[in-house]
Amino acid sequence: MPHDRAATPAAGGPPGGLSLAAAGLRSSRGADDTFRVVLGAFALLVIVLVFGIGFSLAMASGPSLQKFGLSFLWTSKWDPVHDTFGALPFIYGTLVTSALALLIGVPVSLGVAIYLAEMSARGSAVVLSFIIELLAAIPSVILGLWGIFVLIPWVRGSVEPALGRALGWTPLFSGPAYGIGMLAAGIILAIMVIPIISSVARDVMLAVPQDQREAMYALGATRWEMIRGAVLPYGRAGIIGAVILGLGRALGETMAVTMVIGNRPQIVASLFQPGYTIAAALANEFSEASSSLYLSALIEMALVLFVMSLLVNAAARRLVSRVTSSVIAP
């Protein structure tokens, strides 16, 4: 937790605390100060970057902000030919695919995290965690390639017909099976968020003190009762943080989604239908935006995505760092 660090200065500490070494070498004092300022400047650069991103996106989306105002967010007409832009279909697609990803990904991730933290032997847990983390390292464009040639045919041939037969009476699973569409995007996003959610949730569970577990066992609990009664409640904030961290990844994921979602700006109930997300629209349309209003509308969508991921990440870090103080890998 950052506050702890602030309270206890790092070992060694800045030269102010070391009058013994510094007193004899008054001349090096100036060099030390200069060096500290240089280091601080590089650290400051990070803050400047984040504010710079927000500022420059806001500036560049000016024309669109002026013309459409806030209604940009809830109008659904996206017509580059007539310079009319509304972001709703993209926001809808982003939220629906992310929600699907969490719906599929969270139960699996929690199962994985519980298995790795509580059920498997130490040695195999290390190896299995390593394998799960490798999944996070696969470039998203490669997952997209796999999505086009392996996942889509499977979704079209098996998943969607089966869902249609069982749940076809609901609007969510009605209509012809295209393969490409919201469902495929949700599945590929689930694959991408599972490594993140499960590894952060595992870290959170490992940070639960041992005496919590022993107390449950002392009451005669089985292992599952111990997990439900001690580990999950204790780590709840951190586990929610892990899920939100996964949400952040799903909201902004670009390449794999672009390659399987079908890229059609529409709002329809059926998950079998093609859709569009903000990130996919940026990837597809940015370099061919013909008018300056078109370009600034796209940049305004990037701004929306930026604000979303800012809020989501800030919330997640806060929740996770409450439980574990270690660095959370992306």
């Binding site: 990070v46 970057l49 990130a279 990440n313």
Partner: peptide, 17 residues
């Protein structure tokens, strides 16, 4: 905090920036 936030900003947004 900002380093963590920067880490979470979608890469496509960095591209737009």
């Amino acid at each position: 905090f900002t380093a963590d936030v920067l880490n979470g900003i979608p890469s496509i947004v960095i591209g737009v920036f």
